[in-house]
Amino acid sequence: MPAEAIVEVRGAGKSYDGTVEALRDVSLALPQGGLSTLLGPSGCGKTTLLKIIAGLIPPSAGEVWVKGKKVDGPGPERAFVFQDFALLPWATVLRNVAFGLELRGVTPEQRHDIARGYIEKVGLKGFETSYPHQLSGGMRQRVGLARALAVDADIILMDEPFSSVDEQTRRKFQEELLDLLKIERKTVIFVTHSIEEAAYLSDQIVLLSPRPGTVSRIIHPAIERGGKNPDEIRRDKNYLDVVDEIWQILKRYVV
């Protein structure tokens, strides 16, 4: 373990209606301050696992511990970024970003102040009064990210955040996410089905096998990021090796 574990999953399993088994006996330790990816083909239960950690879905077996406490629902130390953005269509960017704080009863002046700061950090300055339908997919997900950052949680859970965003936007967003996380010092748990995305972003990659999802392998990419620009990383030998290693494992699961 490179750092102390902030999230621990112990023997988690999930079955629906007692028949469909989505997850079986998953045990994981996710290090503080790192970016961990849950990677696997569609239907491997990676989103289910993330939502169990978030406390949105109760596990049918096992338990999840976050910061030494057992999870029995969502908590203030965890924030979620949704695959479909989950923005209120009738609310402005400002209200959407401040929504987590609004639910906690923070006064309007305070929460709008905080929200404005994060809107600027995710690069949406000037769009405070826009509505979600006026933004592109990439911009909407920036709103979702700003909302998660605004509640000042230690852990950010991201469910395929870039899957509804085009490839160019996605790359730009990945680079900015890494920059942002350097400053914000969050623990991130990230679900994706993109091998390149996992290899590019992660300190730790958890490979899940499909149906029922079990941990197939845990990889710690030893990519030297310090001082390199994103394009150099994408040509880095270690990066390319990790991508290849993952593909060799995952292609067994593809029909």
């Binding site: 978030a54 406390g55 949105l56 629902g73 969502p74 908590g75 203030p76 965890r78 924030a79 979620f80 949704f82 479909d84 989950a86 209120l88 929504f99 987590g100 609004e102 639910l103 906690r104 909302r147 509640v151």
Partner: peptide
């Protein structure tokens, strides 16, 4: 929208807030 309700819960909204705000 089920996703909005889940979002509200993830950000610690109460049932009352879920009804009134979502």
């Amino acid at each position: 929208n089920a996703s909005l309700v889940q979002m509200c819960r993830a950000f610690l909204g109460t049932r009352r807030q879920e009804v009134v705000k979502i």
